[in-house]
Amino acid sequence: MTDLPRRVLAALGLPIVLVALWWVLSAHSSSFFWPPLSEIVAAFPRTWTADPIMHDVLPSLARLAIGYLIALVAGVALGTAIGSFRTLRALCEPTLEFFRAVPPPVLIPVIALFAGYTGWTAKVITIALGCVWPILLNTVEGVRSLDEVLRDTARSYRFGRTSTLLQVVLRGSSPRIAAGARQALSIGVILMVISELFGANRGLGAAIVQFQRSFAVPQMWTGIILLGLIGVALSGLFRLVEHQTLAWYRGLRQAERGA
């Protein structure tokens, strides 16, 4: 098997070259904005010690998780209801189109009017409200484009309501739900960060902006890199979950394409 080393080389080659380039080019950099990479790397363990991880990073991630899960549950539940009833769908569609089109960061000033913007609640609500639209609309689409034959088959076999819902409706629309959930995740990360930029706060986003305001540039870079790593890790985690739950769908697609 000569294939594996070549693939590893292809996957790691360019990133290594890029990091090396960054390292070499910035080595003697005296630019204020682009400190040497060695300095950033050295600042990393000093900046992200146990205390900021406990009080900034983990709370941010917890808020993201809570808001995202609320959005997922609410979006799938509402989306299934709206998608299943034609009249309800026609009634809601333009309204949903409008709310979907409102850029989610705009929610922050509005929520700030109600709840102020210091506690957890306002931030979690922001994340949940921002994430819910792509999930909701994709669920509606998924439920609506279900195969009629599947539905009728389930009826002929006298599936109960619950098992039709779980086995046919939700299962059948899960590829679309996953597509919506993926969009929602990146919106959630954005909102996690910017919800902390309003008012005096703690959290990952707040910490990074604090470094920027105090002109601690290498520390700020460590924050940017940490955020990037979190983004990559979350999307990797999402893929893993998606890979597990949608295995049947990929098999189906492959079979259809092969035929």
Partner: peptide
């Protein structure tokens, strides 16, 4: 394509808002 795939996959999920402090400084 083979060489850049991993880099694209890595850079894409980096939230653009992470760049806010940098652009504010610049």
């Amino acid at each position: 394509r083979a060489v850049t795939a991993s880099t694209v996959e890595f850079l894409r999920p980096i939230p653009s808002v992470a760049l806010i402090p940098l652009v504010v400084l610049m």
